[in-house]
Computed example of a mutant assay.
Amino acid sequence: MERSGSGSSAGAGREGQGEAVDFRPLYRQVYHTLLRRLADAVWQPGQMLPSESQLASELGVSQGTVRKALDALTADSLLVRRQGRGTFAAEHDDKQSVFRFFKLRSDCEDSAAPQSRVVAIAEASASADERDRLALVRTARVVRIERLRSLDDKPCLIETIAVPLTLFPGLAAMDLPNTLYSLYANRFGITIAIAKERLKAVVLPRREADLLEVAEGKPAIEIDRVAFDLEERPVEWRLSTCITDSVHYLSVLR
């Protein structure tokens, strides 16, 4: 695939005290402490966390600081707040994964979930670009997946995905679901926490144009995404090319 272009404490001890110098806001220190516990599977998907007061007492911070950290984790879709019940580690179901990370929407008012068809899947030696984007050694191998994705039964995106073989053994032999991120979490214990995307305008080469059923040279958008797990490791590189005749890219900024 080629591109075109810790610890269990909050880090501050008692609020306003502590030996280590950490210039992040205290709630961000608590955020990363709780994030580490999620990464270490201290709380399984769907499991309820201790109460805000219990966490505050354990970490030596105020309940308000804990609440702010929990709010941030909830905003990042890593926790779920259920009124009257408590806070739970998020379960990585198909619907959540699709609409958190798939940003294309139909121009129609009601946008359905995308459909996917695997074009090719294989294990291979990592290319120079794959090694660079996934921080892999020269001898590393990857699972490389090519998929065609459609909205409202119209092909709109062709994507090539590379993941380290060491993290996803056996992936190439599986029947892949529509949403890979739920498979990563449920089968391999790897939760995608964040993804960084770069967009640029390109023109379609012949092969991609044929798969998308449009003319070669048609203008398109290239989406270059690296996805990171809870430990901030790059675990997936996804290079997507999409046409926007009847779809648009939607990003909600807060």
Rank of each mutant, 00 (worst) to 15 (best):
V98R: 07
D76Y: 08
D93I: 11
S77F: 11
L70W: 01
E109S: 11
C108A: 13
V61M: 09
A72E: 13
S97H: 04
H92G: 06
V98I: 15
F88I: 04
A90T: 14
A90V: 10
L78M: 12
A112Y: 00
V98P: 00
H92V: 12
A72F: 04
S111K: 04
R81I: 13
D76N: 07
R105Q: 12
L78I: 05
V80W: 02
E109I: 08
D110M: 06
A90G: 05
A90D: 02
L79H: 02
F99M: 12
R105L: 06
L78N: 03
T74H: 07
C108E: 04
L70Y: 01
L73A: 03
D71M: 08
G84F: 06
T65N: 01
L104S: 03
L70M: 11
L78A: 03
V80A: 10
D71G: 05
C108V: 12
D93H: 09
A89Q: 10
A69I: 05
G64M: 08
V80Q: 12
L78D: 01
V66Q: 00
E58N: 07
T65I: 14
D110I: 10
Q96H: 11
L79D: 04
S77E: 13
G86T: 10
A69G: 05
A69E: 02
K103T: 10
K95W: 09
H92E: 10
V80P: 02
E109L: 13
V98E: 12
T87R: 01
G84Y: 05
R81S: 11
R81M: 09
V66P: 01
A90W: 02
K103H: 15
F99I: 07
A112K: 06
V61W: 12
L104H: 06
Q83C: 01
G86I: 13
G86C: 11
A89K: 09
V66F: 02
F102P: 06
Q96F: 07
V80C: 07
Q96W: 03
R81L: 06
A75K: 12
G60P: 09
T74A: 15
K68C: 05
V80N: 08
S97Q: 15
F102C: 08
T87V: 15
Q63W: 00
A90P: 07
L59S: 05
A90S: 14
L70I: 15
L70H: 01
Q96K: 15
G60F: 05
A90Y: 01
Q83G: 13
L59F: 12
C108M: 04
G86P: 08
V98W: 07
H92M: 15
K103A: 13
T65C: 13
A72H: 07
R82T: 14
D94A: 15
G86V: 14
E91Q: 15
G84V: 11
D76T: 07
T87I: 15
V98Y: 03
A69L: 03
R105S: 11
K95I: 13
T65G: 03
E91F: 07
R81T: 12
G60T: 08
L59M: 09
F102M: 13
S77Q: 09
F102K: 04
L79I: 10
V98S: 04
S97T: 12
K103G: 08
L73T: 03
G84C: 10
R100V: 08
H92C: 09
A69N: 04
S77A: 12
L59G: 04
T87C: 14
D110L: 09
D76A: 14
A72L: 13
A75E: 14
F102S: 06
V66W: 00
A90H: 04
Q63Y: 00
L73V: 07
T87K: 03
V66Y: 01
V61E: 05
A75Q: 13
